[in-house]
Structures are given as C-alpha cells and as structure tokens.
Simulated assay, not measured.
Amino acid sequence: MADIVPAEVRSRMMAGIRSTNTRPELLLRKGLHAQGFRFRLHDRSLPGKPDIVLPRYHAVIFAHGCFWHGHDCHLFKWPATRPEFWRTKIGRNREVDQRTDAALADAGWRQAIVWECALKGRTRLPLEEVISACADWLRSDRQRIEIRGG
C-alpha cells in the first residue's frame, strides 16, 4: 500500500517526532513530582539515557513508545510500506533496549518501564493508578517493574 502523503511531507512528519519530553514522559514527571519525588532527566552518563533518573532510590524510569519499541499491544502495527526497513529499525531498538537493561542491572540500577499503552489508547489505565504503581515501586525494594495497558 502506498503512503498517503508525499515523501517530503512524511519526512517532515517523522522528523517532528520527539525522543525526549514526550507526552507520556511529561505525564509521568508531573505526577511523580506532585507525589514529592525529585529526579534528573535524560542522564547521559547512564546506559540508554533514561527518561527519569531518581538517584536517591537508585532507580530509572523509561517511558517507552509502543511503536518505536515494538510493543505487543494495540498501538503497535507493522507499517505496510518499507517493511524491511521497519523490521530492521524496530529490531535494532529492541536489541538496544535489552543491552541497556543488562547494563543498568549490572550497575545496580532498578528499572521501570511505562509503556505508552498504559497512558493512552483503549487499554489505558487511570493516570493516578500508573503514578501510584511507580511510587509504590520506588518505595519498595523490587528490582524491576513494567506497566502496560490493561
């Protein structure tokens, strides 16, 4: 199936997609800050440049977009155009995620992944529930948590 917009328009649209300060990330930051958590953003010294870094809890939080990380939910669908490119691109993103997880775990960092589908779409959870789950995890001694749409 051909794309419905010209190549230069598609290129401009794709270039406009943010890698930092995304809507899911901003929702998490606002909610955690309101709960009294203080954090750093996008620490380049850590593997994967986590979205939210909470040094006091030795924890990091990633707000993963379901499309870009190939999540198995209703928000992810393989594009019909240039399938080889997208399989390579998303496959590489998944490999980087695995290496990042391993490097952070080896360094002793606790990790949380909040999937986009937990915050948007038909399976989204109430924002208060997502923030509460993150806060409970931060106060616990659990190593890892993954929050996905219900």
Score class of each variant (00 low, 15 high):
3 D>H: 11
4 I>A: 05
4 I>N: 13
5 V>P: 00
6 P>N: 13
6 P>W: 00
9 V>G: 02
10 R>Q: 12
12 R>T: 13
12 R>I: 06
12 R>A: 13
12 R>P: 01
13 M>D: 06
15 A>T: 04
15 A>R: 11
17 I>C: 01
18 R>P: 05
18 R>I: 07
19 S>G: 14
19 S>L: 03
21 N>R: 13
21 N>D: 15
22 T>K: 13
22 T>W: 09
23 R>D: 11
24 P>Q: 08
26 L>T: 07
28 L>A: 05
32 L>Y: 04
32 L>K: 04
33 H>C: 01
35 Q>R: 15
36 G>A: 10
36 G>W: 04
40 R>H: 13
42 H>L: 05
44 R>E: 11
46 L>C: 10
46 L>W: 09
47 P>R: 12
48 G>I: 00
48 G>M: 09
49 K>D: 13
52 I>A: 03
53 V>W: 04
54 L>C: 02
55 P>T: 09
59 A>C: 12
59 A>P: 01
61 I>C: 09
63 A>E: 06
64 H>S: 03
67 F>R: 01
67 F>H: 10
67 F>Y: 13
68 W>F: 07
71 H>F: 11
74 H>P: 02
75 L>I: 08
75 L>P: 14
75 L>T: 07
76 F>M: 12
81 T>H: 15
81 T>C: 05
83 P>L: 11
83 P>R: 05
83 P>E: 10
85 F>N: 04
85 F>G: 02
85 F>V: 05
88 T>P: 00
89 K>R: 14
89 K>M: 06
90 I>Q: 03
91 G>D: 14
93 N>W: 08
97 D>V: 02
98 Q>N: 10
99 R>F: 12
100 T>V: 15
102 A>L: 11
102 A>W: 11
104 L>K: 02
105 A>V: 14
107 A>K: 15
110 R>T: 07
110 R>P: 05
112 A>V: 09
114 V>S: 08
116 E>S: 08
116 E>G: 02
118 A>V: 00
118 A>F: 08
119 L>M: 12
119 L>Y: 06
121 G>Q: 08
122 R>E: 12
124 R>V: 00
124 R>N: 00
124 R>K: 15
124 R>L: 11
126 P>N: 06
126 P>Y: 07
128 E>T: 01
129 E>I: 03
130 V>I: 02
131 I>R: 02
132 S>E: 14
133 A>P: 08
133 A>Q: 15
134 C>A: 06
135 A>C: 11
137 W>N: 05
137 W>I: 04
139 R>A: 15
145 I>F: 12
146 E>L: 10
146 E>C: 06
146 E>T: 07
147 I>Q: 13
148 R>E: 03
148 R>N: 08
